[in-house]
């Protein structure tokens, strides 16, 4: 029993289930799923569909955070990706052509990959702190997206492109399936190969890992490439959803929600041990909470207050200080020094 209780996904899952139960009680239609033309509809399905961009970004963020990094540029990369794809489709003779859309998507994702590689270069080769290295692109990326769209909001009417966000496949939203594919691929790669444990080793102790012969640099670089690429796909979904490339609005604040999702899922911002399943749960919590707040009649603009409260609760619960404090209640308070000092205490012992 304690094993379940102590599992690091225990609290995130409890939070998610609680949210769903509250919603189901407050508005029974919340858990209703309709079948229409062999496609599933309902609030829960909408949550799955709407969570796709955040899911992709948060997955990439998980890998980056595992290497002790952070990627602030994901929102800007989303904007660039959407801008690239829509500009290509807009400029093509037949925007409805599947081939055109496919090429546009591939080019957009490749551009995102290059942007991710640029971040990775700054962090792993030049040695700039991740927050700052990705801040550069966070600032400049939107400018690039604006230049691509010529400062306007590019709108297109393309059947195949709209399919990305609103289409259905196997009775499920296509966007959700993209997220599922990303989850499956990442889980397989991280766990079936040794990449997972090597990434954790690099995140926990980069120098020790290098001396152990781990290709730290390549692993860190790779993490940013993955993050950039996934953000690019997220940008395609976002642009497809609004059928437009809005360089100013695409992916605003998504980096913050993605970081929040990762932290909610139990991955520490200090790097190291990470959990893809945790991030998935974290994303679903955020999306469900968002839907709950809307349901409560709160303007979506005011919802950040709720997220602030969530952040505070999560970080305080995760805070080593608090855990020490609780431990001290059961044991005896000895060291009156700061919680920070407790760590080097063990070191000397």
């Amino acid at each position: 029993m304690t094993a379940i209780y102590r599992h690091r996904l225990f609290w995130p899952i409890v939070a998610l289930v609680t949210l769903i139960v509250i919603n189901a009680v407050a508005r029974p239609q919340f858990i209703k799923i309709r079948v229409q033309d062999g496609e599933l509809y309902g609030p829960l399905i909408s949550i799955l569909r709407d969570s796709a961009p955040l899911m992709l970004v948060a997955l990439g963020m998980t890998i980056v955070i595992a290497t002790r990094g952070i990627d602030l540029s994901v929102g800007a990369i989303m904007a660039v990706s959407g801008a690239v794809a829509l500009t290509i489709i807009d400029g093509a003779e037949d925007p409805g052509n599947v081939g055109t859309v496919l090429i546009a998507c591939i080019v957009a994702v490749l551009v995102s990959l290059v942007l991710g590689a640029w971040n990775g270069f700054l962090v792993s080769v030049v040695g700039i702190q991740p927050i700052i290295a990705t801040l550069v692109l966070m600032l400049a990326g939107r400018g690039v997206a604006l230049l691509i769209t010529g400062g306007f909001i590019t709108t297109v009417n393309s059947e195949p492109y709209s399919f990305i966000a609103s289409g259905y496949l196997f009775a499920l939203p296509f966007a959700f399936l993209i997220g599922v594919v990303a989850i499956v691929i990442l889980s397989l790669v991280e766990r079936r190969t040794a990449l997972g444990v090597l990434t954790e080793a690099v995140g926990i102790n980069p120098e020790a890992s290098r001396l152990a012969g781990v290709r730290s640099r390549s692993i860190i670089w790779g993490a940013y490439i993955v993050s950039g690429t996934l953000a690019g796909v997220a940008g395609l979904i976002y642009a497809s959803n609004i059928k437009a490339a809005d360089a100013n609005a695409a992916g605003v604040f998504i980096e913050l929600y993605a970081i929040l999702a990762v932290v909610l899922g139990g991955t520490s911002l200090n790097g190291g041990k990470f959990s893809i399943a945790g991030t998935v749960v974290g994303v679903l919590i955020i999306q469900t909470l968002d839907s709950t707040i809307l349901f409560l009649g709160v303007s979506s603009a005011q919802s950040p207050v709720f997220f602030a409260i969530v952040v505070v609760i999560v970080v305080i619960v995760q805070s080593a200080r608090l855990r020490d404090g609780l431990a001290a209640l059961t044991a005896r308070v000895r060291s009156r020094g700061a919680g920070v000092q407790d760590s080097d205490k063990v070191e000397v012992a």
Binding site: S299, Q302, V305, F306, A308, V311, I316
Partner: peptide, 24 residues
């Protein structure tokens, strides 16, 4: 200082709080 939260995250909470309060 007292909860050992990284400045990035603590001020992120401040960011959300401020923005939400502005709209409230």
């Amino acid at each position: 200082q007292y909860f050992g939260v990284q400045p990035f995250i603590a001020s992120l909470a401040g960011l959300f709080l401020g923005r939400g309060l502005a709209f409230i």
